[in-house]
């Protein structure tokens, strides 16, 4: 009897939305389940890590890993699955670029601990109890994974063969990716399994874009009722479409919400956030210094907006 190829689906620092999008394959998921032998999928099925550890190297045909690497357990599982897998797919924005958890890289680990366990107004912790990596209870030592100083995209920890971005990736791209792996029709290693063009190219509002966009003042979505047919940038609302890869199906745009950039930078660009800054600078209609300062100072959380999904993919020195 021919053995079916083995597949693993695993989450690191993830919200579960990527698992949800796999479930959203609906009936197609049944044919995937027929074609492969799922050996690990914590959110849906009960398997033990020990069974993965006992496998031969490269025994798993495909590991779909979502979530960023945030703690020592994530690192350990990422390395284990890399060792046991022929192909690793970084699935979703967190695995590809760090995702929204990567915004934590704007703070130090110490800042985060102090806020979460001491300073936040909702915290009552008079004894100053902090999570520890080791605690002795009676005769036993209990262990917890160690939170890293930073959030890492998957490829900073292990070699990644393919990338599928999105928060979460849409079911059509997931189905394409899975069938490409099963049929062995994959592009060169390192490829992103999504279109190369920027979102503006496929945006249903592209036609409404004026020849020259001029933003006298940046507005936020809760401050205005956005015109449903008009380019967001032309309305002064920050939309990351010009610097973001297409393929999402424009789902945010269709519910009158500007692009937040979950598909990451377009093909050939490493730092999509910086590219958006350059684009935005050109759209701001401020020539003299005072006006330019006023307009740029009026933008709320520019770094968080430009790097909402990609902050962890930027390696910079800095003050801690």
């Amino acid at each position: 009897m021919n053995e079916k190829p083995k597949a693993a689906i695993y989450w690191l620092a993830a919200c579960g939305g990527c698992d949800e999008t796999i479930v959203d394959l609906n009936e197609a998921l049944l044919s995937v389940a027929d074609a492969v032998d799922i050996v690990l999928w914590p959110v849906a099925m009960d398997f033990k890590y020990s069974s993965i550890r006992s496998m031969k190297d490269k025994e798993i045909a495909l590991s779909i890993i979502h979530g960023s690497v945030r703690n020592s357990e994530h690192e350990e599982m990422a390395r284990l699955l890399r060792e046991k897998s022929q192909t690793v797919l970084a699935f979703g924005s967190c695995a590809c670029f760090g995702g929204t958890p990567g915004l934590a890289n704007f703070r130090s680990r110490k800042d985060i601990f102090q806020w979460v366990y001491r300073d936040a107004p909702t915290v009552v912790n008079p004894k100053g109890v902090y999570p520890m990596t080791e605690t002795k209870v009676l005769d036993h030592t209990l262990k917890l994974p160690e939170l890293f100083e930073k959030v890492y995209p998957l490829d900073r920890i292990i070699d990644v063969d393919y990338y599928l971005p999105g928060c979460p990736p849409p079911p059509d791209l997931v189905a394409n990716a899975v069938s490409a792996v099963l049929e062995g029709k994959l592009p060169p290693r390192g490829s992103t399994l999504a279109p190369h063009r920027p979102l503006c190219d496929t945006c249903p509002r592209n036609e409404s874009k004026p020849p020259k966009i001029e933003i006298p003042e940046v507005r936020r979505v809760h401050m205005v009722e956005a015109d449903e047919g008009k380019c967001f940038l032309a309305q002064g609302l920050l939309c990351l479409g010009p610097a973001t890869r297409s393929g999402c199906g424009e789902t945010c745009i269709r519910v009158n919400t500007p692009c937040r950039g979950c598909f990451g930078p377009v093909e050939g660009v490493d730092d999509g956030g910086a590219k958006f800054v350059s684009c935005l600078a050109a759209l701001l209609s401020a020539e003299d210094e005072a006006e330019a300062t006023r307009v740029t100072d009026g933008i709320a959380d520019l770094p968080g907006t430009c790097y909402r999904f990609t902050a962890a993919s930027i390696s910079l020195k800095g003050k801690s």
Binding site: N105, F106, G273, A274, V277, L280, A281, A292, T293, T296, I299, L302, P303, G304, C306, Y307, A311, I314, L316, K317, G318, K319, S320
Partner: peptide, 12 residues
């Protein structure tokens, strides 16, 4: 002016 805000967030 914009990048001065961005690098500050990255600790520069």
């Amino acid at each position: 002016l914009l990048m001065r805000k961005v690098i500050e967030a990255f600790g520069i």
